[in-house]
């Protein structure tokens, strides 16, 4: 696995007592955890357990009802739920990435693959066209997309390629943390394997932290250092990935682990 800091350094991101209600409906409740630099955290649980709501609150896509999301930015620890909105937007744009399950939501389908990557670079101030194109070509190669497809529309790509393009477009600005919502669901098993392989290489090479929301425990084991198990909006159990999957303690975790084929 990746090189992790061995001393007790400051976390990159810390969620404190985060809650989200939709009217009377509970999204997630009293969630607290911390992510270290280069650490990959998995959030697992069945559909409707509040995993995606939690991720969207961290990503600033939903406004949390209570609690704090502290981010260790270049200007110190900032509460993304409380500080100046323009600053939050800037931090989210430059230091975080967000990959959705449905690549067509994370990509602009009417502009080329290269354009999807270039757009992110331009948003961060890069103006030199040749340099942008060079970067885009390099990133396509890194996520194993034929650089010859740079001028093609993402709509002509397969699901797995679209997902890899979405990841490249998110990584091009060298974020510190990637937030991923079910990036491998809806893909064929062999395509999933390729995506996981690409992610593993990227994570260990870039010193990147990741929060991965998934219901696939096999994917969680392969990619994550630690897991949080969610049920009805709350965390019911957490630990190292092998502890959760091989020595589950809570009734819900035991049920979850025993209901799948060999995670």
């Amino acid at each position: 696995m990746s090189v992790l800091q061995e001393n007790d350094s400051l976390p990159l991101l810390e969620v404190r007592h985060l809650s989200k209600f939709f009217g009377k409906q509970l999204g997630c409740h009293d969630i607290s955890f911390a992510v270290s630099p280069a650490e990959v955290i998995g959030v697992v649980g069945e559909s409707g357990s509040g995993k995606s709501t939690l991720l969207d609150c961290i990503a600033g896509r939903l406004k949390s009802s209570n609690g704090a999301v502290l981010f260790n930015s270049s200007v110190g620890m900032l509460d993304l739920c409380r500080c100046d909105e323009a600053l939050v937007r800037k931090i989210i744009r430059t230091q975080t990435g967000y990959v959705t399950q449905n690549a067509s939501q994370g990509l602009k389908m009417h502009i080329s693959a290269g354009g999807n990557i270039g757009e992110k670079l331009m948003a961060n101030g890069m103006r030199n066209y040749r340099q942008i194109r060079k970067e885009a070509l390099a990133w396509l190669a890194k996520v194993e997309i034929d650089p010859g497809r740079i001028d093609d529309l993402p709509s002509t790509f397969s699901g797995g390629m679209q997902q890899r393009l979405q990841i490249a477009a998110n990584l091009v600005n060298a974020p510190k943390i990637m937030l991923m919502d079910e990036p491998t669901s809806g893909l064929d098993v062999s395509v999933q394997a390729r995506l996981i392989d690409v992610l593993r290489k990227l994570v260990s090479g870039l010193n990147l932290s990741m929060i991965l929301v998934t219901h696939d425990l096999a994917v969680a084991r392969l990619l994550c250092h630690r897991l949080y198990v969610m049920k009805q909006g709350k965390i019911v159990e957490s630990g190292l990935s092998d502890q959760i999957l091989d020595d589950p303690r809570q009734p819900y975790t035991q049920l979850l682990v025993s209901s799948v084929l060999k995670p």
């Binding site: 992790l4 061995e6 001393n7 007790d8 270290s36 250092h225 630690r226 190292l240």
Partner: peptide
């Protein structure tokens, strides 16, 4: 031990 120590 904390997770970071287990990784080490």
């Amino acid at each position: 031990a904390r997770p970071a120590m287990i990784y080490a």
